[in-house]
């Protein structure tokens, strides 16, 4: 069960990375980042079966940070949308050299 959970976690993380690199819609990229965080959470839970309850505690903290990150990130997306009228990241090049 632990091995299968680790494999599942690796697969989900790779799908999430793929989404971040391939999609251009800022909100969907953000959803894929959440998917990566969840994949890591799954491997923490699997390792907690080997090394003790600290793994589950760390998942708790990761979820809190993910909630904070979602709130701030969506606020940034809203304020960018006000300027550019789009959420396609190809049109945000203000910080490009």
């Amino acid at each position: 069960m632990i091995t299968e959970a680790l494999v599942l976690s690796a697969i989900l993380f790779v799908i999430g990375t793929f989404g971040v690199l391939v999609r251009r819609n800022a909100i969907i990229m953000f959803l894929c980042i959440e998917l990566q965080l969840n994949a890591v959470n799954l491997s923490f839970v699997a390792f907690s079966r080997l090394y003790g309850i600290e793994g589950q505690l760390f998942v708790f903290f990761v979820m809190t940070v993910a909630a904070a990150e979602a709130a701030v990130g969506l606020a940034i997306i809203i304020s960018i949308f006000r300027h550019y009228e789009t959420v396609n990241v190809d049109s945000f090049n203000l910080l490009k050299w």
């Binding site: 632990i2 690796a10 790779v14 079966r49 080997l50 003790g52």
Partner: peptide, 25 residues
Amino acid sequence: GGIAGLMAQQLGSTGLEDGPGGAAI
């Protein structure tokens, strides 16, 4: 993805079905 899956499988199969942490939990 294949490499990551194989790594996870190696990592898991060197470990145990249910370690000391599982019993403690």
